[in-house]
Amino acid sequence: MDYRRDIPLAITFLVGVIAVMDYYTTLKSVTDTFTVIKNWGVVLYAFALGIGAVNLFRVHGRRISERRRADWPFSAWLLLMIVMFVVVGLGTGQFETSSQYEWIYNAIYLPIDSTMYASLCFYMSYGAYKILRARNFDAFLLFITAIFVILGNTPLFPATFPVFFHIREWIFGPIVGGAYRGIRIGIGIGAVVLGIRTLVGLETGYLGRR
């Protein structure tokens, strides 16, 4: 018997069966047990946060001490920011609701986050350019469809030529909707089978292939 493999599999089966029973039955004992399990999960995740922090300090602490890479000052900046956020959060005693914490979050983190998100439009435009080049008949059909969808989404064209709006609606309805539902059904079935495979201990990829 391989305890490192069998004990996790037994725990997975037990917790999985309780989760399934919680969904399908009204038994109070099952609901209470599953609530306790979910609370354990929250506690375990809180501990795992520490692992992430330790990893960051180990990786970037090593880079700062070695100074072999040209980007080591960024490592120092990262650790400084982590310490600063923690100190401000804990120091005020109000954590993320304190005005000081909100200020550094809004002044430092949010602009960078928004910039990253905004850059997505350039990546999408470049991706669209690559895929919409009419290299063959299939790509040509995709290109024509995209033209109707893009123009149908603008305010000007559907107002001037209502046909653009109707074609766009037709593409999104029967064509995209049908394909979308087909893939959704496949995803649902695939998730159920993966769940069953995990519960019965056949899917062991998440344990490593022992």
Partner: peptide, 9 residues
């Protein structure tokens, strides 16, 4: 979609 779930197996 579903090929993702079949991947491990």
């Amino acid at each position: 979609g579903e090929e993702v779930f079949a991947a491990g197996a």
